[in-house]
Nucleic acid binder design. Structure first.
Lengths: 185, 185
DNA sequence: TCAGGGTCTGACCGATCGGTCAGGCATGCT
DNA sequence: AGCATGCCTGACCGATCGGTCAGACCCTGA
């Protein structure tokens, strides 16, 4: 057959995204992906060094956006940080619904891999920002519930258009976040 | 060694609960469980017909409570259903934190197993009740975010005492749920 | 025409998975 | 003493996993 390299490469990536989103990273074998593409398992491993590299390339765009959001958040505090975190994360979760679904439930194990080492810290900072940098248990619990719930909802509602899902999630987030005192003049 | 049957049986169950909660159902091998107990893998399979039966016995108490909640919900509508669902699920999630953690991310696959066939329907009814039986997208999205988020939070905050986690989650749920019109006289 | 490089594959590898099975070893009843 | 029963185990099974490798195939440039 011998297709152009970029073509097969992209097809494998797309097939992996579909399968990972349904059956998870560990629940999907290289054989499954190869079958969906219509090539051999060896071909998958010709285009990608190993299974982890395939996942890493799949996640790269989402991770870039997440890192940008983290940078944006670094200079903010209080209610401003809360709102930027809410808007930013909702937008990210809606746009990268499939990538979010891939990680569903496999976060702890996958984050141990070197390619994703810093994501855990970023998500903790994100949670902290959404809690308004407060250490009240209620605020921290609310932030975690929101982040996890929004992720799950995005992975679940695959058939709802972005423009409907995004405002609904944002409204919910703003209603659910524990208000934090902002220094007002 | 030859311990009393109930003793080893219980030890295996406890070890499985610990391991499943950390590494998930699929991520935990029978060998892992046997190692933690200090017996052979064959002993685990002497006390339990197979891996699935071990999981089923582990989940039984939580499933009983969930089924009770479902019965309670069957006769309610509107705001009453919303509040009973919120209180009931928060209580269940807090009490069975470890069982919730086991299912983390493996819901779709595990629910295919015959022992858990009806759980999916129950959780959908629960979500529907929490949405006040409304079909507005905002209400349905909020209900899913809450159920998923509460589950995740309970699985994550293992070190917070029940009496602190429960009211925080309940307050959040009542604040986040989309209010539904109740027929008032 | 031929050499070389990019693409792809079948066959194979060691490791690990869930699960089976014959048999060892106590204990208690007859 | 002899036997049955319950508990436990090492050895083993077929399947599947991620990954390797030698070589086939095709295209292109010299």
């Amino acid at each position: 057959m011998a297709r152009a390299v970029s073509e097969t490469h992209g097809e494998i990536l797309a097939a992996a995204a579909r399968r990972f989103a349904v059956t998870g990273y560990r629940g999907t074998s290289l054989q499954d992906i190869a079958r969906e593409v219509g090539c051999s398992k060896a071909t998958v491993l010709y285009h990608f060094a190993n299974k982890e590299a395939l996942l890493a390339e799949l996640m790269a765009p989402a991770i870039t956006v997440l890192t940008d959001l983290d940078d944006q958040l670094s200079g903010l505090t209080g209610a401003a940080a809360q709102d930027v975190a809410a808007v930013g994360f909702v937008d990210l979760a809606v746009r990268f619904r499939r990538e979010i679904a891939v990680l569903r439930g496999e976060f702890p194990e996958l984050l141990c891999q070197p390619a994703f080492a810093h994501i855990q810290q970023i998500s903790e900072r994100l949670r902290d920002a959404l809690a308004g940098h407060s250490d009240r248990p209620g605020a921290r619990i609310a932030a975690l519930v929101l982040l996890a719930g929004i992720s799950e909802a995005c992975a679940e509602f695959v058939d709802i258009p972005d423009d409907e899902l995004r405002p609904a999630l944002l409204t919910l987030a703003r209603r659910a976040v524990e208000p934090v005192g902002t220094p007002q003049p």
